[in-house]
Amino acid sequence: MLPRQGSTIAGPMDDLYMFIFWLSVVFFIIIAGQVVWFGMKYRRRGPGEKTPHITHHLNLELAWSIIPLLLCIVLFFWGFDGYMKATVVPGDAMEIQVRAKRWQWEFEYPDGIRALNDLYIPVNKKIRMVMISDDVLHSFWVPEFRVKMDVLPNRYTDVWFESTIPGTYNLTCTEYCGKGHSTMRGSIKVLTPVEYEDFVKEGPPELKNMPLRELGELVYKSRGCESCHSLDGSRRDGPSWKGIFGKTEKFTDGTSAVVDENYIRESLMNPHSKIVATYEAVMPVYKGLLRDREVLGVIEYIKSLK
């Protein structure tokens, strides 16, 4: 019923969940059982049936008021305890800054490395996410960690977790934020300590050995290029990549240049220096967001699009 337990707080939280679940099952069986059983047993046999005149029964009524009340108080304290454990951040947590914007997650590590949508973290380490939104409300949810917190504009909120099993976990936005709400996903890749060190140096493991063209395609799909640059020559917010390599582009300032490796790199790092005529300056800056090898990948990928 619940997704796998990926963090230290998942276990206790699931215990509570299962407790409420079985409690509900018991109460449901009692009530539904009565309804169905009475419905069959006391079914009207004829028009003249007499029924007993039972108006109330104080002790019975007190019992079914007080017992649920006590159970509810238990639930409250249990839930409050779990809530405090899940939200009070331990002092020794590693801090990662999160900036949510429509419709992507931007992360920044303490040493300044930045990542988009994919977060790599070490296993068995307490992580605190300090979050802020660029626009509307978002909400940070990793189902397998059982953590969720809204991300607000102009105010920091935080959430913490300590993952227990290396692997990939989904991150989703759970506060409705418009058109791209349901695709505002990210992934949290929990790495072993060795892998994490490697990551800090060279980037994510599965990308390291990928052929450049494939890496470029991945960047195209995962870093938002797709939404503005088509591959089939059709017009979107930016020029199509089909056959663009080697073409001469005219710019809004009247100059022109051939699309080559240097031009592509410049367009990624400093896109607003040259704007292709008839387009608007809407391209985001990818400086610091792409590793060198990923830039090379994009160049190779564009070259391959004849």
């Binding site: 206790p12 939280m13 509570l16 969940y17 409420i20 679940f21 409690l23 509900s24 109460f27 449901f28 009530i31 539904a32 309804v35 509810c72 639930l75 409250f76 249990w78 839930g79 409050f80 305890d81 779990g82 809530y83 454990k85 899940a86 939200t87 909400s139 949810w141 189902p143 059982r146 953590v147 969720k148 759970t174 506060e175």
Partner: peptide, 25 residues
């Protein structure tokens, strides 16, 4: 009676702070 009971009981999951974190929205 059956459906409202389910509705009411599942409300307990949501009124409880810890489980609501996971189930909210």
């Amino acid at each position: 009676l059956l459906l409202f009971t389910i509705g009411g009981l599942t409300g307990l999951f949501l009124g409880t702070l810890a489980t609501d974190i996971h189930l909210h929205d």
